[in-house]
Simulated assay, not measured.
Amino acid sequence: MMWPSIALLTFVTLQRLGELALARRNTAALLARGGKEVAPEHYPVMVALHAGWIIGLWLLAPGKPVDLFWFAVFMGLQALRLWVLATLKDRWTTRIIILPGTPLVTSGPYRFLRHPNYAIVVGEIFALPLVFGLTLYAIGFSLLNACVLLVRMKAENAALKSVMIVK
């Protein structure tokens, strides 16, 4: 039975494409308001990692049984993703955009974690392959993602520290 895996992969692919469109719109608006992009050199690597992750899942997962526990974990992460998007609104983007003089967001999931979106992505990159029983895939992409996130979080934290004010 291929339809459950195809349906889930279609959902994730469409979700990511929709988020890229939203991010592009938000990035343009932030830049128009005086925002500055920080550390853009890592961005193509991050995009390639995420594209490779999805493409690889399309190659390996169709027809594999869906593990309901990991499916529930993954869907729980989607609820948290929506919480992040709703909290950040027009400030959510896939790039690091700093808007000088703007207070840090400290509501929603940002009350509990400094980078909840990154925590969610870490969970997604690990959990979705496990939905299909792809354990080594989950570990491999998680390690690659950790490398990208270390660079990204270091750059973002430094930028936030230098220009943002806390409410």
Rank of each mutant, 00 (worst) to 15 (best):
M1H: 15
M2N: 15
S5T: 09
S5L: 08
S5C: 08
S5W: 05
S5P: 09
I6Q: 05
A7H: 01
A7I: 13
L8C: 08
T10V: 11
F11D: 04
F11W: 12
V12D: 03
T13F: 05
L14H: 06
Q15G: 06
Q15M: 11
G18W: 02
E19I: 07
R24V: 09
R25L: 13
N26L: 04
N26F: 03
A29I: 07
L30M: 15
L31G: 02
L31F: 04
A32L: 12
A32T: 04
A32P: 00
R33L: 15
R33S: 13
G34M: 09
G34V: 11
G35E: 02
K36M: 14
E37W: 03
P40N: 11
E41T: 14
H42L: 08
Y43Q: 13
P44V: 09
V45G: 13
M46V: 14
A48S: 14
A48F: 03
L49V: 09
A51T: 13
A51K: 09
G56D: 02
L59I: 11
L60F: 09
L60I: 05
G63P: 09
G63L: 08
K64E: 09
D67Q: 07
L68N: 08
L68E: 09
F71W: 10
F71I: 03
A72M: 06
V73K: 00
V73F: 02
F74H: 07
F74Q: 05
Q78P: 06
A79Q: 12
A79N: 05
A79R: 13
R81M: 04
L82R: 15
L82W: 15
W83R: 08
D90L: 08
W92G: 04
T94Y: 14
I96K: 01
I96Q: 01
I96A: 02
I97D: 02
L99N: 02
P100H: 01
G101A: 04
T102I: 03
P103C: 02
L104M: 08
S107M: 00
S107T: 15
G108H: 04
F112I: 05
R114V: 00
R114F: 00
R114P: 00
H115G: 02
N117H: 11
N117W: 06
N117Q: 10
Y118K: 01
Y118W: 05
I120K: 01
G123I: 04
E124W: 12
L128V: 09
F132P: 00
F132V: 00
L134I: 00
L134W: 00
T135L: 14
T135W: 14
L136F: 11
Y137E: 00
Y137R: 01
F141T: 04
F141K: 03
S142I: 07
L143G: 13
L143Y: 11
L144A: 15
L144N: 07
A146G: 09
A146K: 10
A146R: 10
C147D: 12
C147A: 15
V148I: 12
V148F: 10
V151Y: 15
V151P: 00
R152Q: 06
M153W: 03
M153T: 08
E156N: 06
E156R: 04
N157M: 04
N157A: 07
N157D: 15
A158E: 14
L160D: 05
L160E: 05
K161H: 14
S162M: 14
M164W: 08
M164Q: 13
M164Y: 13
M164C: 13
I165S: 11
I165W: 10
V166N: 12
K167W: 12
K167I: 10
